[in-house]
Design a protein around this nucleic acid. Structure first.
Lengths: 126, 126
DNA sequence: TCCTAATTGAGATTAATTATCGATAGGGGC
DNA sequence: GCCCCTATCGATAATTAATCTCAATTAGGA
């Protein structure tokens, strides 16, 4: 399974980097399809997942919503608005040692964690 | 919208309590349908969500998988096996003050959080 | 018992994503 | 540069989880 450098994959990577924040596959597709009308949704999904596996982008699986992709790869946490379902970055340091705090418990081999805060965003609250 | 006590709702509640751990709607449906072949999936989904709203059970939205329901209502964290997709309880105290650690940042009004650890469970690792 | 609105069952629908498969094209070897 | 092999592509069908629709049913107060 040698990875090839296709035009489509670089378009997807570029779109995620330019759109900056927590884009969904659909948003990436929409951004690319204006310039390249022939690209397929399946290709966008495939490449987003491949790029995430390769570590070039970060995949954030959102409960109750579409997965989101992020050009930022260092660990950070998110907050989801219960009304508008948008996802925001949270200004809190990544807790590196959190995995270690439970590592021994059940023979489970931890490889990371996500924290998702829930609440109401400023715009939805008035 | 006065809530009625229907047979179906009590069946759903009973099933969640008896099955104990992190059941999916499909598992609840399967458990009930053997005894009550006429129950509808829609009814199971409806009642699971209603019971969660009423605070009788806890709804756990799993990123990248079906929602799960839990008879346990006090806050606790979970780990998801990346291979078999099962969800386990994690032996770690609930961090009550975590919401406060980010409360001020953006005018976001926090009302809770979930932590989902990722890794490989003992059974999938050999 | 009667009324009324909450709830049900069956199936259609939606949303997000993945699978299928023949066609296309990247890139190593000559 | 040209071939070849196969990774990847595009188009579309299939899947999965969950919700919606709506006529029929039923809980529970009057």
């Amino acid at each position: 399974m040698i990875k090839r450098n296709t035009i489509q994959r670089s378009l997807v990577l570029q779109a995620v980097q330019e759109l900056k924040c927590h884009v969904t596959a659909e948003e990436v597709y929409a951004a690319i399809v204006t310039e390249h009308p022939n690209i397929s949704r399946a290709t966008v999904y495939r490449n987003l997942n491949q790029l995430a596996e390769m570590g070039e982008i970060h995949k954030l699986e959102v409960p109750g919503g579409a997965d989101r992709f992020d050009h930022q790869c260092h660990g950070h946490y998110h907050a989801r608005c219960l009304k508008c379902a948008r996802v925001f970055d949270v200004d809190m340091a990544y807790i590196k040692d959190l995995d270690k705090a439970v590592r021994d418990s059940h023979g489970f081999e931890f490889s990371g964690h996500d924290i998702m805060f829930k609440g109401i965003c400023p715009e939805c609250r008035e």
